Each structure stands twice: as C-alpha cells, then as structure tokens.
Computed example of a mutant assay.
Amino acid sequence: MTDVHLPAPEREVSGIRALLDDNPIMGESRAGARRFWTGREEKLLREHYPQGGVSLCLQHLPGRSASSIYNRAGQLGLRKQDERGRITERQAWTSNDRIDAVILRTFQGNPDKGAVKRCAAAVNRPRWWVSKRAQQLGLVSPRFKEPEWSEAEREIIAEFAHRPVKTLRQMLASKGFRRSETAIIVKLKRLGADRTDPHNLNANQLATVMGVDRKTVASWIAKGWLKATRRQQSESDDFWKIHRRDIRRFIVDTIAAVDIRKVDKFWLVDLLTDREAA
C-alpha cells in the first residue's frame, strides 16, 4: 500500500475546495466490485466524518479518494461541525478578477454551448457555475429559475437515487413537489448521487463480483437456482434484477456451484454479514 501525504490541518481551515482539488487517496484506488461502498465503510464514515471530516476519514478508508468520501458523506447527510455547531466543511466555488475576465471575454461574443464548456474548463469551474456567474456580472439575461430545492426533496432523491428518473418524479409528486425529469437529472449530478442500487444487482454486476461470465449467471437463473426478475422485456441479461438476499440464499444453498476462489472476498464478507440480506 502506497502512502499519500495528507493535507496539513490548516488546509481544512482554508476550505474543502483546496482539498478536493488535490483529491488525495491512501493506497490504491478501488476498482471493479470494490468500488461499491460496504456497510462497514459507511459505519466508519458515520463515526469519523462529523469529528474530522474528509482528512480524518482518508486515514480510516484506504482506497477512497477525498472526493468520493465527500460525496458519500453528503448522500448520507453527514456534516462536519465546529464547537459552535457551524458547518465547516462545505465545497464553495469562488471567483476572482482573472476568472471574471475569462468569462467576460467568452460571453461578449454570444457563445454557444461548446464555448461555455471550454470557458468552464479554462477556469476550472462547473459549466452551470460559469453561466450563473455570467448572469451575476450582467453579461446574460437571467432565465426562469425553478424554486429552490427543499431539504425534503433532496432527501428523497438522495435516498432513492438508484430508482429510474420517472419513478423519482412520481415519488416527488406524491409528496406535493413538482419537478421535471430534466431538473431531477441535473440535481442528481450536482449532488454527486450514487445511482447504484444498494439492494439489487444486474447479471453483469453479479458476474463481476462472482468471477464468472454473465452466461453462467443466466444459467443459474434458468435452472431455478438463483431467483431473479426482469426490469423490462428484453433478451439482454443486463436487465435481470437480483436482490441481495436471493444472492445470499443462492450462495448458501448452492455452494457446490460456486468457485469461492474467484469471488470478490470483500463483497462476499459484506453480503454474508448483512443482516438485511439474511
């Protein structure tokens, strides 16, 4: 495992933005099935983030980058607070004379979408922020703006981010919130929401963590060993929906068909110790 120099404590005081720009990571980055957050990792995140923020969590979560820790903490509703109860670790985009000058040159020529994108890359800011800054500088007329997202709305789409956008829109509507599907997609991106379904895998995902190809998974389903449902009418195995408890039951009941040497051990331990999957 390769150690990466962590930022000094005063770096946190200067703002989370500097830390996320560096985006340090302890050890090797997680890839494949290991990119999924486990229950153990989330427990460590809940334990350490409120006290020490991203910097402290980097020490307890090897393989997780600063940005991935920050985004996951946001999805779980975690905040780092000081002694006075103020939130001290929030990403904020700022401007300066150089950035404003670049935006001014771009928007003086009635730019298209590509020009705005290049401008955003030049100033190292999101495209939406550049457009908003241009409005603040009086370079473009403000468009109709949707009402601010309420905390209740953010909680709904963060908790159920893995659901289809159409379903999210219906869920919001049932609570009295009217949002377009486009607005929901944009908000999910800005929140950095993890759209991976925590309770279900498709055939490709299961094949990856089991160390087999998806045809093998399809054969388990065809033989009735592994319970699965289709998310829509399709001949593609990608549309299989397989619940974690059914995967656990399959492994326990049909262990002879599973080559344990090929299974991702971290994922397997998390699955077998998950009470909800039991």
Rank of each mutant, 00 (worst) to 15 (best):
V186I: 09
D82C: 03
K132H: 10
R98D: 14
L172S: 13
A173Q: 15
E151N: 08
V102W: 01
D197W: 04
K117G: 09
S180R: 13
G114N: 14
R90H: 12
D194E: 10
D100Q: 13
P147G: 12
L104W: 05
Q81D: 03
T182N: 10
E83T: 11
L56D: 01
I156D: 00
Q170S: 14
A173G: 13
R133L: 09
S55E: 13
R179G: 02
N71A: 08
K132M: 08
K145R: 14
E181K: 10
V116C: 07
P126Y: 05
L188I: 13
E181Y: 04
C119L: 01
L56K: 03
R127V: 07
I87T: 14
S68K: 02
Q59I: 01
E89L: 13
C57D: 01
A121Y: 12
I156R: 00
N96V: 13
Q75Y: 09
T88A: 03
A92R: 14
Q170R: 14
R154F: 01
L188A: 09
R127L: 02
L61A: 07
T196S: 07
R105N: 11
S174H: 06
L188Y: 09
Q108G: 10
A161N: 05
K175M: 09
R125A: 04
N110I: 00
L139E: 08
V186L: 09
P164N: 02
N200I: 00
N96I: 13
R195Q: 15
T106Q: 07
P126T: 06
F177L: 13
A158C: 07
A152T: 07
R90G: 11
R98T: 14
I156T: 05
R105S: 11
V123Y: 06
R118T: 01
I184M: 09
R154E: 04
L78R: 11
N124C: 08
I184Q: 08
R84L: 06
H162D: 14
R127Y: 01
A92D: 08
P147D: 13
I184P: 08
G114E: 15
R79N: 10
K145N: 11
E151A: 12
A134C: 12
R90D: 12
E148P: 03
F144Y: 12
E83P: 05
D82F: 02
K80A: 09
S131K: 06
T106K: 06
A115F: 00
A158V: 02
R90A: 14
P142A: 15
D197K: 04
G138M: 11
F144T: 12
Q59T: 02
L78W: 10
R118V: 00
D197G: 04
R178M: 03
Q135H: 07
T106R: 06
E155Y: 05
L76Y: 06
L104A: 11
I157N: 02
E151H: 05
P147R: 14
G109F: 08
R86W: 07
L56F: 03
P198H: 14
S180T: 15
V140G: 02
N124S: 12
I87V: 15
V130G: 11
I87M: 09
L201T: 03
V102S: 06
A183C: 13
Q59W: 00
V116L: 04
G85R: 10
G74N: 02
Q75P: 06
E151W: 02
G63I: 00
I184W: 08
A115Y: 00
R64G: 01
Q59F: 01
R64A: 02
H199S: 06
S141N: 07
D112T: 05
L58T: 01
S55I: 15
D100W: 06
Q91R: 15
A158E: 03
L137Y: 06
I185Q: 12
Q135D: 11
